[in-house]
Design a protein around this nucleic acid. Structure first.
Lengths: 252, 252
DNA sequence: GGGCGGAAAATTGCATTCATTTTTTGAGAG
DNA sequence: CTCTCAAAAAATGAATGCAATTTTCCGCCC
């Protein structure tokens, strides 16, 4: 069984792009059909093909993926444990709706994980990996000066990913990917284009980040990264989710 | 189906007791038979009824819990996503064996989560909750002076849990519980009885913890908690897992 | 016209069944 | 006696079947 006779979940421009740093989730799960389906279903939901709060139609997904209900339901149970959907007894699964408070909580956890990643990265990063981050930082700065939002986002994303990678901690990577996935459904129109102040502030924070990392100042970097995420959230506050899975960039 | 004909897995005093502030893991999962089975199976494994690295016998567990393979397999998939077991394609599930590096990584993540909890607690803790922690701290100190290891452990555990509760962040609680569960299989014979130095050091660290919390110094507390966990790990280093599910206390 | 009640349809949860794959077993060769 | 290899046995992964619950739909009453 190869999971083929399906119309490829169209609209996957969003994730595929950022996918450069695809995390393996759990090695044991990526292999073996079940893991394949799990990843596909996760993407399907994360990309917004299902409205927030909407019912998850087993039947429909079964034919969409060309499988029977058993593996699908197994995948749903896992996605529920990841917090992406919720299971109502006898009433099926629903796409988890994020309230404002939950959003804040999730951002804080992301901040905590990035803080941890930064601290660990200071201990473990190789000179090469640091050099690469430095390069990305300068490229980002250049994008910033050019007001190239897209380039800026890409570098920004890459830098944060590199820091997590540099932490060299598998459970951390997995958790990070999980929370990032949950937040990916959220669209912040905190378009930096409309928020020059925040953009400049974010850029300054990144200067601090690079500086702390250069000095391998773990505690400091940890602090800065947490605050950085806090500010990112504040800048994006009040914005809701958006069904169409078009643009996948997130403000920083 | 009522999931009855089984000897109740006991010894979960840790999490269940603290329920004053609700530890629902995921609300959607605790209700509904599936969640019940999931919790039971998780406990069954965490408590060491299955040897580390051993095969997870579906057939046996089915009759043990009095259910068919379908719900059991769903639960196994979830436990795999939690990292408690691993799924080998066509070769079933195995209890995850923690190597030394993974253990270190897990401890670091726990440290990161506690650090985050401390930071958030400084922002959100109520005077009453703080007073309770202060009380526990003094009780712990008293146990320390009396060389009452059991009392010391209990207070220590309670303090860390209260800090997580005070952070008032559901996803954090869930993640924390998840990682704590993974580490529960590990028995550190870092018996403070045989390690007076570490005991005193831990006590001093707890003084710092309380002090930072009193001053609501989030960054500081964050730092201390991370270092505290690091030291805890170092003191416990080199110890392996233990099959018998007797005593459930973990060294600090 | 706007609910109300109840039967039909759909959906869910779990058990059972079936096709593959892996593991075990045992006979025979070296 | 040990190793090899094939057949039997067992286990896994997924599909299907079935009872129970929920949702939908439609005629009916107010």
């Amino acid at each position: 069984m190869v999971l083929d006779p399906v119309t490829e979940p169209e609209a996957d421009a969003g994730l595929a792009a950022i996918d450069g740093a695809r995390f393996p989730a759990f090695p044991s799960l990526v292999k073996s059909l079940h893991g394949e389906l799990l990843a596909r279903l996760r993407d399907y939901i994360v990309e917004g093909n299902l409205a927030a709060g909407a019912r998850v139609p087993e039947r429909m997904l079964c034919e969409h993926f060309g499988i029977s209900r058993t593996p699908l339901r197994e995948a749903l149970k896992v996605l529920a444990s990841e917090g992406l959907i919720e299971l109502l007894p006898n009433r099926g699964a629903r796409v988890r709706q994020l309230g404002a408070e939950e959003l804040v909580d999730l951002f804080d956890v992301m901040g905590g994980l990035e803080a941890l990643a930064g601290r660990l990265a200071c201990e473990k990063i190789t000179p090469e990996a640091y050099a690469e981050i430095e390069r990305l930082h300068h490229e980002m700065y250049s994008s910033y000066m050019r007001r190239d939002l897209h380039g800026y986002f890409a570098c920004n994303q890459a830098i944060h990913d590199r820091i997590v990678q540099a932490a060299d901690n598998e459970p951390l990577r997995t958790s990070y990917a999980n929370f990032a996935g949950r937040l990916r459904r959220v669209r912040y129109s905190a378009n930096l284009d409309e928020n020059r102040d925040r953009w400049g502030e974010a850029m300054r924070e990144h200067e601090e980040i690079l500086d702390a990392l250069r000095r391998r100042a773990g505690s400091e970097l940890s602090d800065i990264l947490f605050r950085h995420l806090r500010n990112k959230r504040r800048a994006a506050e009040g914005r809701e989710t958006a069904p169409p899975p078009d643009d996948a960039s997130a403000a920083s």
